[in-house]
C-alpha cells in the first residue's frame, strides 16, 4: 500500500534497508489492525450506513428555536477560553525563560524541571485536565478555566522558549556591553526581540482554546458543552445539530479573528 519508488542513485544496501523498513511498517500495520479489531463486532460496522442514515434523518432539521438558550453558554465558553488563555500565558512566561538554554539560571537543575512541566502540560489534553479538575473542585466554569490554563502552559512556553533561543545574540551582547544589569538586558535586549512571537503565540493559543472550550462541558466543566452533553443524554438530536452549528460558527469566527490579528502583528 505505501510504496516508494526505487531511486537509482541509492546503493543496493540502502535499498534493502529501505525495503525492510517499509515491509516492517506494513507488517506492524497488519498486526495492529488485527489486535485493534479483535473485539469489533462487524455486524455493527456493516450496519453503519443504515445507522448513519437513521441518525441523519433524526438530526435534521436542527432545532433553530434552541438557539435562544445557547447565548449564555456561548458567552461562558468565550470566557473560559479567554480567561484560561490569560492564566496559561501568565504562568508560561516565567517557565519559558527558565527553559530557554540562553536565559535559564541552571542548565542542570532548573531547565529539566521546566522542560518536564512543559511536556506534562502538552501531553495531557484539556479535556483530561477538565475531567480531573471537575472531580477535584467540582463542576463549573472554574474547572474549565483552570483546565484550559494548564493545557496552555506547555504550548505557549514551548513556542516561547524556542523564540527566546532564536534571539540574535549580538543585540544582547551590545546591551550587555553598556554595563546593563541582568533585568535590563532582559528588558532591552531579549523582550523586544520576542514580543511579536509572544503576541502571535498567545492569539494562536486563544483560537485553539475557543475550539477546545466548546467541548469541556461534556465532562461538566462549563460552557456550551454542558448543553451538548444534556442533549446527547436525552437523544435530542435536533438540538445536538443546533449546537454543532453554533460551535462550527464560533470556531470559524475565532479562526478568522486570530488570523487577522496575527497578520496585523507580523
Amino acid at each position: 500500500m505505501m510504496t516508494t519508488p526505487v531511486w537509482q542513485h541509492r546503493t543496493s544496501r540502502a535499498n534493502i534497508v529501505l525495503w525492510v523498513g517499509w515491509l516492517f511498517l506494513v507488517a506492524l500495520f497488519v498486526f495492529c489492525w488485527q489486535v485493534m479489531t479483535k473485539d469489533t463486532i462487524w455486524a455493527f460496522v456493516a450496519d453503519a450506513p443504515e445507522q448513519a442514515a437513521d441518525l441523519g434523518s433524526r438530526m435534521f432539521p436542527p432545532r433553530w428555536s434552541y438557539l435562544d438558550k445557547l447565548w449564555v453558554p456561548l458567552w461562558d465558553t468565550m470566557n473560559i477560553a479567554t480567561l484560561g488563555t490569560l492564566l496559561g500565558v501568565i504562568i508560561a512566561v516565567p517557565i519559558a525563560f527558565l527553559a530557554a538554554s540562553n536565559t535559564t539560571p541552571s542548565t542542570l537543575f532548573v531547565r529539566p524541571v521546566a522542560l518536564f512541566i512543559i511536556v506534562a502540560s502538552r501531553s495531557i489534553n484539556s479535556l483530561i485536565w477538565a475531567l480531573l479538575l471537575v472531580s477535584i473542585i467540582g463542576p463549573g466554569l472554574l474547572a474549565g478555566i483552570v483546565a484550559i490554563g494548564l493545557r496552555s502552559i506547555g504550548f505557549v512556553a514551548k513556542l516561547l522558549y524556542e523564540a527566546i533561543e532564536e534571539t540574535e545574540k549580538i543585540q544582547i551582547e551590545a546591551v550587555t556591553a553598556t554595563g546593563a544589569s541582568g533585568a535590563q538586558i532582559l528588558n532591552y535586549g531579549i523582550v523586544p526581540q520576542i514580543l511579536p512571537a509572544f503576541y502571535g503565540i498567545s492569539v494562536f493559543r486563544w483560537d485553539i482554546n475557543i475550539r477546545e472550550s466548546t467541548i469541556l462541558g461534556l465532562v461538566g466543566a462549563g460552557g456550551i458543552g454542558v448543553q451538548l452533553q444534556a442533549s446527547l443524554n436525552t437523544l435530542a438530536w435536533p438540538q445536538v445539530t443546533m449546537i454543532f452549528v453554533v460551535i462550527l460558527g464560533t470556531v470559524v469566527i475565532s479562526e478568522w479573528v486570530s488570523a487577522k490579528v496575527r497578520h496585523a502583528i507580523i
Binding site: 540574535e168 549580538i170 543585540q171 551582547e173 551590545a174 546591551v175 556591553a177 553598556t178 532591552y188 535586549g189 523586544p192 526581540q193 514580543l195 511579536p196
Partner: peptide, 11 residues
Amino acid sequence: MIFQEYALVER
C-alpha cells in the same frame, strides 16, 4: 562598543 552588524535592538 561599536559592532560590525550594528547590533542595534532592531525592534
